[in-house]
Nucleic acid binder design. Structure first.
Length: 292
DNA sequence: ATCCTATCCTGTAGGC
DNA sequence: TGCCTACAGGATAGGA
């Protein structure tokens, strides 16, 4: 479910509400998430507090200071498809279905992690850890056409699969991959390494602007996603192709098509995102060559 | 090595 | 109404 914009929205809320309050007690459901919670998970929080919340790609890091003042680790959280943090100034009157962890703070407020499908993840990591298989976060560095072109050139996979590969670009998921490809006018079926410099430049710009706009709208709610205030994201109303199979393209009116690539739906406009003709490929090559 | 498929789960929408 | 199938924002162990 949540991609970079949704996770960033959650991060901002957590950062505003959670740090500083000491943990009084922790409850867990006993269910395993993507991995079982570590043994001694509940007790490991006693008397300590969160001090800040960071994000890399779709991973959240809740920085931790233990009761004895040590600050050498963080709680790594991944929301998977349906993971959700919620908080309340007072204890929840009843736990929402599929609640797996509840942190109760000394002031009586609570933070809760729920996840119906249990693809989420909560685990202790070293403070300076960076998850394996997580590449560059496009909000951490200026995503340039040159950098993207160099990375695309190494991949034989379809460009859609490239965008979903967290080892390359961290944070883009199925919605924003589809949206960025549409904005850049590139077919999801194109092999990554066949993109021209000009197309790589357009794609870098499209990824960057799509993520920024989505963050500005607090993400996209397809069904389940809510921020900590239980509000849905508002970017869903602005989606150009994702989830719009059969509906008219907002640019040209042709019906949006859906195909399956590596087990995931890709939505695109076959007119606005057609494979390049030789003529257009030559023109793009000329532009790239002349540095325009 | 790289790419793709199946898998972990529950909920829901749509067809009959 | 109920039963069935397909699909859902993700990551990843294996097989090809």
């Amino acid at each position: 479910m949540p991609e970079l914009p949704e996770v960033e929205t959650v991060r901002r809320h957590l950062a505003r509400r959670v740090p500083g309050k000491r943990v009084r007690s922790v409850w867990t459901s006993g269910h395993k998430l993507r991995k079982p919670l570590a043994r001694g998970f509940r007790g490991s929080f006693a008397g300590g507090r969160f001090t800040g919340v960071r994000r890399i790609g779709k991973f959240l890091f809740l920085d931790w200071e233990s009761a004895d003042g040590r600050s050498d680790r963080s709680l790594l959280a991944h929301l998977g498809m349906t993971g959700q943090f919620r908080d309340a100034r007072q204890a929840f009157r009843e736990r929402p279905l599929h609640t797996h962890v509840v942190w109760t703070f000394e002031d009586g407020s609570e933070l809760l992690f729920a996840d119906p499908r249990r693809f989420g993840l909560l685990e202790w990591v070293a403070r300076d850890a960076r998850p394996a298989n997580v590449g560059a976060d496009p909000t951490e560095f200026a995503l340039s056409g040159e950098w993207l072109a160099a990375e695309l050139a190494k991949s034989k996979a379809p460009v859609k699969a490239f965008l979903l590969d967290q080892r390359k670009l961290a944070g883009v998921g199925n919605i924003y991959a589809c949206e960025a490809l549409f904005k850049a006018g590139i077919s999801p079926k194109r092999r990554a390494r066949t993109l021209s410099q000009e197309e790589a430049r357009r794609l870098a710009e499209a990824v960057d602007s799509t993520l920024k706009e989505a963050i500005g709208n607090r993400g996209t709610t397809i069904s389940n996603y809510r921020d900590l205030d239980d509000r849905p994201g508002e970017y869903g109303e602005r989606l150009l192709v994702y989830g719009r199979e059969g509906e008219p393209c907002r640019r040209c009116g042709a019906p949006i098509r859906r195909i399956v690539q590596s087990g995931r739906s890709s939505f695109f406009c076959a007119t606005c995102q057609r494979k390049p003709t030789r003529t257009r490929a030559r023109r793009d090559a000329r532009r790239a060559g002349s540095g325009v």
